[in-house]
Write a protein that binds this DNA or RNA. Structure first.
Length: 569
RNA sequence: CGGGAUGUAGCGCAGCCUGGUAGCGCACUUCGUUCGGGACGAAGGGGCCGGAAGUUCAAAUCUUCUCAUCCCGACCA
């Protein structure tokens, strides 16, 4: 492709509303342009990257027996009412009406549509299992779109759905899918992590996310520095302290009330009493469908509502709104002794040899609490977030590292949630009617491109991995007024193109500096620079974008050499 | 949905406090010189200052409302 024939509007300066590197470079390198909040146009160069990723995904999906389909993005409300999600999904679901005033939505996901398709066509176990996938635009009316294409409202997604007669079958496809995902991200040249994930409201049995580690990521990933344990921090298990026994304290003192006027926060109390947060029991009030409850943990910990909810086994739970609660709760001075609420404690507190806690009385705290003695009746469990340097919950030796990650893929075993509510039934070998078992699997395609930039860039621009680079090689004639330069560049361009190398020839009548800056910004893996000076000696310059390394090679070997280096990249 | 900020030429910004009819850099057009890391000179083109209402002789500037965009948080199959 000639630069003069492809629209690549590069920008010298980053737009003011782009915060993170990938967003800035996607705009600056002319890959995308914004239309509205969270809605972007993809330009020719950007589309080439998207297509590359799509094709890798297609190959890997096809390899595990996935069949590509293309489902409607506009979906009738009836299906969503049937699955129960018309009400449940909330404002994220963009609802629209047609001229007959019939309700539709713009699909944020396609469980309903695919389940409807399969239930109509599949009646027998002999037709199962089935795996369908599609690559298509989704719309989710996010409250707060951000980071450009990273978290858009309209976005390109590969979604796949599988249907099975039994657990064994779904688990096999799930494992295949997990391997396919690893292959995909590997082939995209990304450093990724497969992590345990929350099944969320979907409530399936198994779920993993695929994350690319990047500081701008929105999730926190905890992983062991020794074994292969990796988990989204929102659910990462901890090594439960109670397993290692309760704290012993022969000299346990009696509980004593002390005056702590105005000292409400952990910070204020620790500095006032000259103690550490590890010596404080923090008490947090939550509101749930079972009423108000209190969660207890060590002062340096944060309670994880998801874990607490599981321990309570309740429907919903969230931190109580302090402003609207009654005066019987002394906020800032809450503690487990004498609190008239159901209490749940993190098991770690039983390891505290002595503790300070609120006295449930304004301006007072209690000291000398010995949890194994004073709080033994409280139900305990793992209700806190794991954090960096916690012992690994899987192996004996490792400690937890925490890094931020961008979620590129998510796979679920769905079970029969949709097949049941939407009556996707089949007859098994015994002639018995059963609900199909389902799995669903997603990859954010545009987000993968953004994450690649996030992971592979420098101060000059993008450094594409060759597999998803819009072109592999950029040929740069330094001065197009020099006939020999142009001839050499044209010849090399033709040779490379004929050999199937996607090559961009910068044939613009621009000065060398501009071409170099743009080339670095676009980030094609290899640049071949042709100029009059070196050409006199029959040489051209080959530059590897990522390392910045250059080497002089004879013009007549340039094509061959470049192809060789490309395969080694 | 709560908090914060910003809307002035394609992009980045100044002007606003202290009202007097819009400016800088880059980009763009033409000509000349230059030509291996975002050249130089000269001459140009482009903006109802996000929108509406109000105050005023006069509004980019003051007031009110509204819309949009971004950031932080809550939320997130």
């Amino acid at each position: 492709m000639r630069y003069s024939q492809i629209f690549i509007p590069t920008l010298k300066e980053a737009p003011a509303d782009a915060e993170i590197a990938s967003h800035q470079y996607m705009v600056r390198a002319g890959l995308i342009r914004q239309l509205a909040s969270g809605i972007y146009s993809t330009l020719p160069l950007g589309l080439r990257v998207i297509r590359k990723i799509e094709n890798i995904i297609r190959e890997e999906m096809d390899r595990i027996g996935g069949q590509e389909v293309f489902l409607p993005s506009i979906q009738p409300s009836e299906l969503w009412k049937e699955s129960g999600r018309w009400d449940f999904y909330g404002k994220e679901l963009l609802r629209i009406r047609d001229r007959h005033d019939r309700e539709f939505c713009y699909g944020p996901t396609h469980e309903e549509v695919i389940t409807d398709l399969v239930r109509k066509e599949v009646k027998s176990y002999k037709q199962l299992p089935l795996t369908f996938y599609q690559i298509q635009t989704k719309f989710r009316d996010e409250v707060r779109p951000r980071f450009g294409i990273m978290r858009g409202r309209e976005f390109m997604m590969k979604d796949a759905y599988s249907f099975h007669p039994d657990e064994e079958s779904v688990n096999k496809t799930y494992d295949d899918m997990a391997r396919a995902y690893s292959n995909i991200f590997e082939r995209c040249g990304l450093e990724y992590k497969k992590v345990e994930a929350d099944t969320g409201a979907i409530g399936g049995a198994r779920s993993h996310e695929f994350h690319v580690l990047a500081d701008s990521g929105e999730d926190e990933i905890g992983f062991c520095d020794i074994c292969d344990f990796a988990s989204n921090l929102e659910l990462a298990q901890r090594r439960i302290p109670s397993e290692t026994g309760e704290a012993e304290n022969q000299d346990a003192k009696a509980i004593e009330e002390i005056s702590t006027p105005g000292k409400k926060t952990i910070e204020e109390v620790t500095s006032f009493l000259s103690i550490t947060p590890q010596e404080i029991i923090k008490t947090v009030i939550f509101e749930s469908n079972a009423g108000l409850v209190a969660g207890l943990c060590r002062g340096d910990r944060e309670i994880n509502p998801i874990k607490l909810k599981k321990l309570l086994d309740c429907e919903w739970l969230h931190p109580a709104d302090q402003s609207k609660q009654d005066d019987s709760i002394a906020y800032g001075y809450i503690g487990p002794i004498g609190l008239k609420l159901p209490m749940y404690a993190d098991a770690e507190i039983l390891q505290m040899p002595q503790a300070v806690a609120g006295a449930n009385k304004t301006d007072c705290h209690l000291t000398g609490i010995y949890p194994p003695r004073d709080l033994s009746t409280i139900k305990t469990g793992d209700i806190c977030f794991a954090k960096a340097n916690d012992p690994c919950p899987q192996c004996d030796k490792g400690t937890l590292q925490v890094k931020r990650g961008v979620e590129l893929g998510h796979i679920f075993v769905l079970g029969n949630k949709y097949s049941k509510s939407m009556k996707a039934h089949f007859l098994d070998a015994n002639g018995k009617e059963q609900a199909m078992i389902m799995g669903c699997y997603g990859i954010g395609v545009g987000r993968t491109a953004a994450a690649a930039i996030e992971q592979l860039h420098d101060e000059k621009g993008i450094c594409w991995p060759k597999s998803i680079a819009p072109f592999q090689i950029e040929v740069i004639p330094v001065n197009i007024k020099d006939e020999a330069t142009v001839t050499a560049a044209e010849t090399l361009y033709k040779t490379l193109t004929q050999n199937g190398i996607e090559t961009l020839l910068d044939d613009r009548p621009e000065r060398a500096g501009i071409k170099f800056k743009d080339a670095d910004l676009l980030g094609l893996p290899i640049q071949i620079i042709i100029g009059p000076k070196t050409l006199q000696e029959g040489l051209v310059e080959l530059r590897i974008r990522k390392s910045g390394g250059t080497l002089s090679i004879p013009l007549d070997q340039a094509s061959e050499k470049a192809q060789k280096i490309l395969t080694e990249l």
